[in-house]
């Protein structure tokens, strides 16, 4: 069976800036595949190339078995897109937006009405179809976009940061719709996110940092590969604490998110030893099982929030050079 997506040696330069630096991966048909990384890591650039919105500088990418550069229109017919920013016409009604899409994608007229109902009911917007999109809430708009992305029954659905800018409750509900959709439609989903917890919804994930894939596997396997618990403590003197951890326990600790952070095998057994042998006062302690956040940290040496802080400048540079796209 041909993979839904296959990417080989893909690079993309914007002037001097390497947004994507040679990535390879494959996504099997029916899989839900996540691209995980901080803002500016190259996720959106990759998705733009896969959606034929940008040409690669070098390398190849095939989606639904077709080359994204040479068979652009065939690729476009086979993909559905939900972007980070809304791409709805807020002056039209929900139904009018979908009708516009159906005509652009050449959805057969006889199939339109039943399919419209199906996708709108799937996202719970059938009763609101006559409302002007400007009156929709953020979550409703995102759901309408998901419905629109599915209208022409694509083989691959791209979700670029599908929950960014939504409140936590709405984020959860969007994921319910997506998981539900996986059960109903025969579809491959490619998504990007910088929320670690959301990556858990994927069958496999690739961690991308500075335009390169640093790890690619199932969420479970990636977490298992770390094998350690993460301990974060706050102390009276953090620098002194890091030194003591090295001297007393031989543990390498670092500051992350304002806390002394380190990894140990079975954290719950380590904490009593920590309190017994640590020469300086500990104000609080937290132990967490390896999460994808830890996976990200172990592969890139920083938490995703640290990465975002440093990548901000690079983003701004790209933004001022190329304007908003």
């Amino acid at each position: 069976m041909t993979p839904a997506i296959s990417v080989s040696q893909l690079t993309k330069k914007y002037g001097e800036i390497d947004a994507v630096r040679g990535i390879d991966f494959e996504v099997a048909a029916g899989e839900t595949f996540g691209f995980l990384g901080p803002n500016g890591a190259g996720k959106s650039t990759t998705i733009k190339i896969l959606c034929t919105l940008a040409d690669p500088t070098s390398g190849t990418a095939r989606v639904a078995g077709h080359d994204v550069v040479r068979e652009r229109d065939t690729v476009r017919r086979n993909i559905g897109l939900v972007f980070q920013d809304t791409t709805l016409d807020s002056y039209l009604t929900g139904e009018q937006n979908l009708r516009f899409h159906a005509d652009l994608y050449g959805v057969p007229k006889a199939a339109f009405a039943p399919r419209l109902r199906q996708v709108l009911e799937m996202v719970g917007l059938w009763d609101r179809r006559g409302g002007v999109v400007a009156t929709y809430s953020g979550g409703m708009k995102r759901r309408l976009e998901i419905a629109r992305g599915l209208l022409h029954a694509p083989r691959v659905l791209f979700l670029d940061e599908p929950t960014v800018g939504l409140d936590p409750q709405t984020r959860v509900s969007i994921w319910e719709y997506v998981n539900d959709l996986k059960k109903r439609e025969d579809i491959t989903i490619f998504l990007t996110t910088h929320y670690m917890d959301e990556a858990e919804h994927c069958d496999r994930i690739a961690i991308i940092d500075h335009g390169k894939i640093v790890a690619i596997d199932t969420p479970e396997a990636l977490k298992a590969s770390i094998g350690k618990d993460r301990v974060q403590i706050s102390t009276a003197d953090d620098q002194e604490a890091i030194r003591s951890l090295a001297e007393v326990f031989g543990i390498e600790a670092a500051m992350h998110e304002g806390l002394v952070t380190f990894s140990v095998e079975s954290g719950e057994h380590f904490v009593p030893r920590l309190f017994a042998d640590m020469p300086i006062g500990i104000q609080s302690v937290s132990v967490s099982r390896p999460s994808l956040d830890d996976v990200f940290m172990s592969y890139t040496g920083k938490t995703i929030r640290d990465a975002e802080a440093t990548v901000g400048d690079r983003n701004r540079m790209i933004a001022t050079r190329f304007g908003r796209r």
Partner: peptide
């Protein structure tokens, strides 16, 4: 900007059983 009655809608949709996929050939 109505926070909707969507959860209920979705439930009804499930009850109506729309698992049968409408095929659209572009």
């Amino acid at each position: 900007p109505a926070e909707d009655t969507s959860a209920q809608d979705a439930l009804e949709a499930q009850e109506r059983d729309l698992t049968e996929l409408i095929r659209v050939a572009v």
